[in-house]
Structure formats: C-alpha cells, structure tokens
Simulated scan of single mutants.
Amino acid sequence: MAEADIITAIVSALKADGNVAGLAADRVYGGELPNAETAHMPRNCIVVKPSGGVSIATGSFSDHDTQRLDLFSYGTTPFEAEALRRLSRRALVNIRRRVVERCLIHWVEPAGGFTAGRDPDAAWPTAFQSFQVFHALQEV
C-alpha cells in the first residue's frame, strides 16, 4: 500500500473549494511557487509547504500522524492576499474525516495566528498561517 501525500491532498482540497477558486483559480501549489508563475506575480495564488512541529501520534503504533503545514497566500494587493488566506482557512478547517486524493484527513486546525505583509525578497503582498493536519499515513 502506498503512503498518502498530505500536501497533494491539501492542495487539491483548496483547489476544489469554490470560494478559494474564485480568487486563486487553479493557482494553488505544493512546496514552492513554480518558476513559470513568478513572471506573473504579484497575483492571487497559494503555496502550501510542510513545516516542523510535534506529532500528536508520537509513541503510538497507529498508521496516522499529524503534519504541520504553512499556507502562504499572495495577492495583487495586501487586501486580496489576506482575503485569500481567510477563505483558505475556512476551507481547511471545514475538512472533517474526508478522503482527498486517496488521503484520509481527519481534521485540519489552525496551529497559531496569522500574519500579513510583503514577501521579503520580491515585496509581493502576502499573508501566512500555519495549520496542523491529522491524517492517515497509508492511501485509502
């Protein structure tokens, strides 16, 4: 049995959300912003990256784990970047025991507050928030 890909699942869930798609279209990426996309920036898009954090499944023998994810939303203006972050938050926290891209996601919760500002390298408007995801490790 193959290992589930939580980043692909979260990207797919965000793309499937009508409110998120209304602002970002299909510009939701895992890991980093593709080089082809940078030529069109700043515009509305999302990047989901894995980050560190403590697993709540430590010491258990379950085929489940938690993963902390960082969500970066970009916009043509600071207002749009923040609006996209808010819509993404709502889409993610509404995931409850759902299979997405063969990955069983039990829940997604904010892992702290949010921040907004400008990308330090390119000065694009951005907003940021971390999430903790509890999911199955094996594809279903």
Rank of each mutant, 00 (worst) to 15 (best):
C45R: 15
G52L: 01
T115G: 15
S73M: 07
G117C: 08
A111V: 03
S51L: 01
E80K: 14
E109V: 13
D119Y: 03
T115A: 15
L84G: 04
T76H: 08
A122T: 10
Q129N: 09
P125G: 03
N35I: 10
Q138K: 13
A123W: 00
Q67C: 07
L87V: 00
R97Q: 12
L84N: 05
T38R: 15
T58A: 14
A122N: 08
V54F: 01
G117V: 04
A83T: 04
P125D: 01
C103R: 01
P34W: 07
V47R: 12
S60A: 10
G113F: 12
A122Y: 08
G113P: 15
I95V: 09
P120N: 09
A36P: 10
L84I: 01
D70F: 06
C103T: 14
R118L: 10
A91Q: 12
V133D: 09
V108S: 02
R96G: 02
A136S: 09
D63Q: 13
R98G: 04
R85S: 07
G52E: 05
W124D: 04
M41H: 13
L104V: 00
V93Q: 05
I105E: 00
G117Y: 03
T115E: 14
T66C: 05
G117I: 04
P78E: 08
P78W: 11
A83M: 05
S62K: 11
E101H: 07
R90D: 13
Q67H: 07
R90G: 03
T66M: 01
V93C: 09
F61A: 14
R98H: 05
R43P: 10
T76V: 11
F131K: 10
G53D: 02
